[in-house]
Design a protein around this nucleic acid. Structure first.
Lengths: 332, 332
DNA sequence: CTGAAAGCGCTAACAG
DNA sequence: CTGTTAGCGCTTTCAG
């Protein structure tokens, strides 16, 4: 089923059929009707592969994320998808599993489709990846993080600053014996930066983290419980626990409440991400919103603008996450 | 940057360069090396648009799902993505927002890329959608649901049966005054089928649902709390609540535990999906696993097989969800 | 093992 | 407003 079929069925030249189907150029109402009828009758679906090759315009936006298992990324994707929905652009998603080699491979695959733009999570990329992007010469928006040197545009939050602000709030509230619980993911740069921002701020106040606990795999809620128990077994005097994400934080919160521990009196808690789930917990966990949906939407907007020839390259947009004290961090 | 550039840089014909880059046909080691060096030096990324047009082989698998906001679908996607990872196939995702018109539109868009196969959620599609799929003549796998007539292949669970089995377990445990809490989504056919299977089985036992509550939007956990309160306000005598998904069920569970209600003695609870989250709750909610990841992986496997010319068309695979009684449904 | 010719299905550019 | 011509960048096919 090709344009030629529609052309023959309607008695109109292929070129004019093409114009009708793309709403491009002036075509008389009569011809237009004939063509549309023939196309519908035949159930013609244009071949974008041929179309894109001929026009060298591709309506694809490549999106590269580390994972689909962590709800954070589907939320970003959802923002991108919703925003692109109002345009002709279509997202194509690739998943790297947090692995740089895989990122390179996925990037290569995606670029081979000659997308009109690219959205990619994080600022850390291999030299090979950077080289590919430079060659591709398409608008690139790096998302989620702004702590570093973007290739082109960038929208996200400062995770270092997020860690820093949480540390300040904790200190301000008077907590001093602080533990950290996180994921065993050396390649999660954003978690690492939050940790750095956090510990550096504590250090400036002359405080060092008294205990740490890391996990990998499994149900985050369960792991949060287990880690909380473990860290308190080893460091019973801790008066605050900072979790690298809300799910393990929620697990810890549930565990402590069951134990009858006074939260936030005896021990304070905080997580990170601002997941909706927290609203339904018995007590609201302190957290910091990562602006996931907004980041996705803004990235999509930037790409749209650039493709439309409007936005400037190199634009950096820093979102400011709200600190939400909830009910697990004493107000100061 | 085209094949021609690599050809000129390496002094090898375009055709042979093409063969090297695709590992196709016999090429001497010497030529191969020359070509690979030139390609790497230039940072050449093949143009799959041209390649696909010329060969009429497209390594894309279209995946159409209702939403990214409900964790269920990213989980299925993740299964598909992981399974396709070991092949040359690449998933391309489209989102319908549960709207049939949007599904048609997304399907049209996707088919215009001439994917090698299609995975689509659900068995309910408009006539136009079915017509497009028929014309496309590619392997189609409908997923998540098996209650209906598939277009081609199909892998999922019977939601009617899931509702039926849960009803049986509830009756067996001796509960009689039953309430239902679900989403306000007339187009979520799977939720509807569970409800049908559930009520039909109750009816056979001479029992009718005594109260219902529906929600739309907002945090499911919070809504679960609110709905639970609301339904019990209106029907204080209910002794069982069946939730159409685990998140609202978890909200209900937390609410009742806080109230000091005897679960499952005074009132029993059950959800649906088998989300990992449940493992970390104070009490484990009864549920039924929807086999989300497995369905994704199996669908991807079916597509791979079909594209490789192996699998039979029309294969239907019914997964059997495990009933997990947890600690909110009295054992019988 | 290597190359030349032809064309995938469509659209840009130009001519009427 | 409509049609013709010439590719887009690659691969198929066939010839050496």
């Amino acid at each position: 089923m090709t344009l030629r079929d529609v052309s023959e069925a309607s008695g109109v030249s292929e070129m004019t059929v093409s114009r009708v189907l793309r709403n491009k150029g002036d075509v008389s109402a009569a011809t237009r009707a004939k063509v549309q009828e023939a196309a519908k009758l035949l159930g013609y679906v244009p071949n974008r592969i041929a179309g894109s090759l001929a026009s060298s315009h591709v309506n694809l936006v490549a999106v590269i994320i580390p994972s689909l298992k962590n709800m954070v990324f589907p939320e970003v994707l959802s923002g991108i998808s919703d925003e692109l929905d109002e345009s002709v652009l279509q997202p194509v998603v690739g998943v790297t599993g947090y692995r740089p080699e895989k990122e390179e491979q996925v990037l290569f695959e995606m670029l081979s489709w000659r997308p009109a733009g690219l959205i990619i999570a994080g600022l850390e990329h291999s030299d090979a990846s950077r080289a590919m992007l430079a060659q591709a010469a398409i608008p690139v928006v790096e998302i989620m993080d702004v702590d570093g040197a973007p290739i082109d545009s960038c929208v996200g939050i400062s995770h270092r600053r997020a860690g820093h602000e949480m540390a300040e709030a904790i200190l301000r509230a008077g907590y001093r014996r602080i533990g950290f619980l996180g994921t065993q993911m050396p390649l999660d740069h954003r978690a690492r930066k939050r940790f750095e921002g956090f510990t550096r701020t504590l250090a400036k106040a002359g405080i060092e983290i008294e205990g740490q606990e890391f996990y990998a795999g499994g149900s985050a809620l369960v792991k949060g419980r287990e880690m909380t128990q473990a860290i308190l077994d080893r460091h019973p005097d801790l008066d605050f626990l900072y979790y690298s994400n809300d799910m393990i934080g929620a697990g810890g919160l549930l565990y402590l409440l069951e134990k009858g521990v006074d939260v936030p009196g005896k021990i304070g808690l905080a997580g990170f991400n601002g997941v909706e789930l927290l609203d339904g917990l018995p007590r609201k966990l302190a957290t910091m919103d990562a602006c996931r949906r907004e980041i996705g939407m803004e990235a999509a907007r930037m790409i749209k603008a650039r493709i439309a020839g409007q936005g400037e390259p190199g634009k950096i947009m820093t979102m400011t996450p709200r600190l939400e004290l909830g009910q697990t961090l004493i107000r100061s």
